[in-house]
Design a protein around this nucleic acid. Structure first.
Lengths: 218, 218
DNA sequence: AATTTTTTTTAGCTTTGCCTAAATTTTAAA
DNA sequence: TTTAAAATTTAGGCAAAGCTAAAAAAAATT
């Protein structure tokens, strides 16, 4: 059971798209992987014969249990490396992703389990995404968008769904990061901006910003 | 300037063979890389057009300055990862090599420099081999084979040129490792075995064992 | 229901890195 | 020095993973 970088990338992308969009098409995959639809079809046939997904021409495809297992394992590796790069090597939040994209394909089981141990079995990567454990189980955080958080309900920022430098700069200025406690004081229907309280400081944030923040009640 | 895994492996192998054997031939390279002479020739042509080495058919080849630079950079990555795997993740000495063989091809400069810093700019990997610095400079240890160490001259074990589990077990039993002080008391011409003193204990070691041990006088 | 548009697939080609078998060149031996 | 052996290279192919252009199927419009 050893898969090529390309195969792993396809499986991972299908898994993510499934979660994000509910459905996965040839074109969506091509777009996500920066390739052509014809190439996607080629790979679908290959993964089908390897029984990593179910595929009927023109009817779409979906991961088999085995395919899902592999996808989760790739995601585990990716997120552990992100955690390592960010927390141990002090590489900036926003630069970590492309490096992890390469490291995730190094496939020694022992390496990953030892790394996990070394990092203290972290539950979440630096972007707040949950890290699957060595059995492929991923903690189910019932995270919700900040926009959906009820008024006056304290919560904790657990994901930032966009890592542009501009956004990070703004968050930094506001002292908002993963784990920051936050509470929505008021909403303004006019522009969907909202007043929030962070560390006993109140200020207003725009809808654009809020839409990228996810929180966890607790 | 981005090179494929295969290109990097060829450059690295040529560099090592050059050092170990003084000369590099098509067959030696094929053997070292577990491939066929014809494949080696193909790659030599390719690296030649990329000006990473000089190549005349039937006349052999040698690294260009640029090729050497790349080889040293690959070696730097390999050895830093070995150090990390061994010292931080506690992965056994003998298992570290094949994992580093994969990690060495992840090419982010920032990653490697940050890793170097995180590890405290180590000068040597767990096998005692020197790690090139970020400019490609490698400390020149004038290490010599234990077999060449003069009698009664105290020295320090600085490399074990073979990592089979059997060998490691033997070394462990003898309390010999990198940095162990050792002295040759007597040599027996019959079988080239030798009596050595380690930590005020004297015992005999075989030629087979000695041939893998390198020491540094000091 | 017929036609147009969009999506997906097929067919055929390219590059990389490897292979085998045959040819060539160099080296060693008789 | 002629011949035999060994090393190296060439020629021709193969699999992976991508591509373009054309064909086929499904979905959307009229």
């Amino acid at each position: 059971m050893n898969y090529t970088t390309s195969e792993e990338n396809y499986l991972k992308a299908i898994f993510h798209l499934q979660l994000e969009e509910g459905t996965v098409t040839t074109n969506m995959l091509a777009e996500r992987l920066q390739t052509r639809p014809a190439s996607v079809t080629d790979m679908m046939k290959k993964l089908n014969t390897k029984k990593l997904l179910h595929y009927k021409p023109y009817y779409g495809f979906s991961l088999s249990p085995e395919g899902k297992k592999i996808a989760l394992y790739v995601i585990r590796r990716h997120r552990l490396w992100e955690y390592f790069l960010s927390k141990k090597l002090n590489i900036g939040w926003s630069e970590v992703h492309p490096i992890a994209e390469e490291l995730e394909h190094v496939s020694s089981r022992k390496l990953i389990d030892k790394l996990d141990e070394y990092l203290g079995f972290p539950g979440f990567d630096p972007h707040g995404d949950p890290i699957p454990d060595s059995k492929g189980k991923m903690r189910d955080v019932s995270k919700i968008p900040l926009e959906a958080l009820p008024l006056h309900q304290p919560a904790e920022v657990c994901q930032v769904a966009n890592q542009s430098p501009e956004l990070l700069e703004l968050l930094h200025h506001r002292h908002i990061g993963i784990g920051t406690r936050i509470e929505v004081k008021k909403r303004f229907g006019f522009d969907n901006s909202m007043e929030v309280k962070v560390k006993s400081q109140s200020f207003t944030i725009s809808q654009q910003l809020a839409s990228y923040l996810y929180v966890k009640k607790n």
